[in-house]
């Protein structure tokens, strides 16, 4: 994965590398694009969003996505594992209903509902994003574990593996590609949804977009959107890479 170890052609066609270069260039180089935006939008007094640095916004955006996704993976993955155990089977229907409801709620509505309880800031955003990311994680964890062939489980138990050994040595490795696909969906959704979280006061890349929309400043909107898009590409390509490794390592 090192840049030095790659042939130029390989480097140019690698989505992850290109995305990373674009992201870093956009985040660090946005201020130097000020003259460009000034030319494109001559009517604007302030053609570059300068209230917060793009580095700060990007890091905060990533932190919000990261923490909420991690919470969704732990909660959703844990719940998905629980309802596929003999003792948790009864709760499967309930869990799937709750997760679907979480997803059917528009993110703005979840944000709006969280604000009276938690106030403005990152906390309501965190709750909304976590809820939002739950469904794909739960769904794919359950589907992945369901997909482990019955004879494989039968022989794992028959050979004397305990419940934890069956889960960690057999079920999770075999379900990993499917679970990872769910995590990927969840994270990508959250990269986009985190932008909307700026409406409740979370500092994310959505801030220039919201401010730009309110103040009819198209340049702000474009600046925020470009970086969000680049971030999404990088994360998606990263998951692609991860899925490739995982496939080679597990689903033979």
């Amino acid at each position: 994965m090192t840049v030095a170890g790659m042939a130029p052609r390989e480097f140019l066609t690698d989505r992850l590398m290109l995305g990373l270069v674009a992201l870093v260039a956009l985040v660090l180089g946005m201020p130097s694009l000020k003259p460009l935006f000034a030319t494109l939008y001559p009517g604007l007094d302030r053609p570059l969003y300068e209230a917060e640095s793009f580095v700060r916004l990007t890091l905060d955006h990533m932190a919000l996505v990261g923490v909420s996704s991690l919470a969704a993976i732990l909660l959703g993955g844990g719940a998905g594992i629980a309802v596929t155990r003999p003792w948790g089977r009864e709760f499967r229907g309930l869990l799937e209903t709750v997760a679907t409801m979480g997803q059917t709620f528009p993110p703005v509505a979840v944000l709006a509902l969280a604000v009276p309880v938690m106030g403005f800031g990152s906390e309501p955003a965190l709750i909304a994003l976590t809820l939002y990311a739950l469904l794909p994680v739960v769904e794919n964890t359950v589907a992945g574990l369901d997909g482990v062939p019955a004879p494989v489980l039968d022989s794992a138990r028959g050979l004397g593996m305990g419940p934890a050994e069956v889960l960690f040595r057999v079920e999770l490795p075999l379900a990993a590609p499917v679970i990872l696909a769910g995590v990927r969906t969840a994270v990508i959704i959250n990269v986009g949804t985190a932008a909307i979280a700026s409406t409740v006061g979370a500092k994310t890349l959505g801030l220039p977009i919201i401010v730009g929309l309110n103040g009819s400043n198209q340049a702000y909107v474009i600046q925020g959107a470009l970086i969000v898009a680049a971030l999404a590409v990088v994360i998606d390509a990263g998951f692609d890479r991860l899925a490739g490794w995982l496939t080679r390592w597990s689903q033979r």
Binding site: P149, P151, V152, R157, L159, G160, P173, L174, S250, R252
Partner: peptide
């Protein structure tokens, strides 16, 4: 688990661990 580790177990669909 201890009981099963003392016995061999073979089934029709083999059930080898594919990974």
């Amino acid at each position: 688990e201890e009981l099963r580790r003392r016995m061999g177990y073979v089934i029709q669909s083999v059930g080898l661990f594919p990974h």
